[in-house]
Amino acid sequence: MAVTSLLGAVLAHAIGPQPELAVWLLITPPAIALAAIDLAVHRLPDAVTLPLAVTTAALLGITALLPTAQGSWTRALLGAVAFAGGYFALFLISPNGIGFGDVKLALTIGLVLGWHGWDAVLAGAFAGQLLAVLHGLVLAAAHKTGRKTQIPFGPGMLGGAYTTVLLAGIS
């Protein structure tokens, strides 16, 4: 609860009084839950990932109708296809490295980053990869991993999306 509140306050400051702030605030609690679940059991459940993607698309579609909206719903949809398509390609190349839950989570991340622009999609993808690698390095330094240890990727993906928005001050 404290993490959700803190992240909400930081998002409000970074995004400002734009209608898309409501979308970010509404998707944050399930995003934090997904990160915690993935860290605990290395799974991103369909019961959360799929409704989150559909809800995010619908909320951004409604947001696009508002006169003060700063993004593009069409680009959000294309961002979801591109982001999830990239993760799907990674899944096909290495199904032991990327789970299909990561592909489904990529739909939501692609939507919210695509809304803000292609630079946000690329930065979020890079930041997510970087955070996942850093997580793996920290675990390795703490001697909590081996060569075959699977590292949950969802928290890095989500962290990359939030980092992109917070550091870029997207509004």
Results as ranks from 00 to 15, higher is better:
A2W: 11
L6I: 13
L6P: 00
L7R: 02
L7P: 02
G8E: 04
A9N: 05
L11S: 05
A12H: 06
A12E: 06
H13S: 09
A14Y: 06
A14R: 11
G16H: 13
P17N: 14
P17H: 07
Q18F: 02
Q18V: 15
E20Q: 13
E20N: 07
V23M: 00
V23G: 03
W24Q: 00
W24V: 08
L26Q: 01
L26S: 10
L26D: 03
A31P: 00
A31G: 05
I32Y: 04
I32N: 04
I32F: 07
A33W: 10
A36V: 09
L39N: 01
L39M: 14
A40Y: 01
V41D: 13
H42M: 12
H42N: 08
H42F: 10
L44D: 01
D46S: 13
V48W: 12
A53I: 00
A53N: 01
V54M: 12
T55C: 11
T55D: 01
A58S: 05
A58F: 14
A58R: 04
L59W: 03
G61Y: 03
T63E: 07
T63F: 00
L65E: 07
L65H: 09
T68E: 15
A69G: 13
Q70H: 11
G71K: 11
S72E: 07
R75D: 11
G79A: 10
G79P: 00
A80S: 15
V81Q: 00
F83W: 14
G86K: 08
F88P: 00
F88E: 03
L90N: 06
L92Y: 01
L92M: 12
I93R: 11
I93S: 02
I93F: 13
S94A: 15
S94M: 04
S94F: 10
S94L: 06
N96D: 12
G97S: 12
G97K: 07
I98S: 11
G99D: 03
F100L: 11
G101T: 03
G101W: 04
V103N: 02
L105R: 02
L105N: 00
I109N: 09
V112I: 15
L113E: 08
L113C: 07
G114M: 10
H116W: 01
H116N: 14
H116A: 12
G117L: 12
G117E: 10
G117S: 10
W118K: 04
D119R: 10
D119M: 11
D119K: 09
A120N: 06
V121K: 10
V121E: 10
G124W: 04
A125W: 13
F126A: 15
A127W: 10
A127R: 07
G128V: 02
Q129I: 11
Q129A: 15
L130F: 14
A132T: 15
A132V: 07
V133Q: 05
H135F: 14
H135A: 12
H135C: 08
G136T: 02
L137M: 15
V138S: 01
V138K: 02
L139K: 06
A142L: 15
A142C: 05
A142F: 05
A142S: 09
H143R: 14
K144T: 03
R147K: 13
R147T: 05
R147A: 15
T149I: 04
T149C: 02
T149A: 05
Q150H: 14
P152H: 06
P152M: 00
F153V: 09
F153A: 03
G154N: 05
L158G: 04
G160C: 06
G160E: 08
A161G: 06
Y162R: 06
T164A: 09
T164N: 08
L166S: 07
A168Q: 12
I170H: 14
S171E: 05
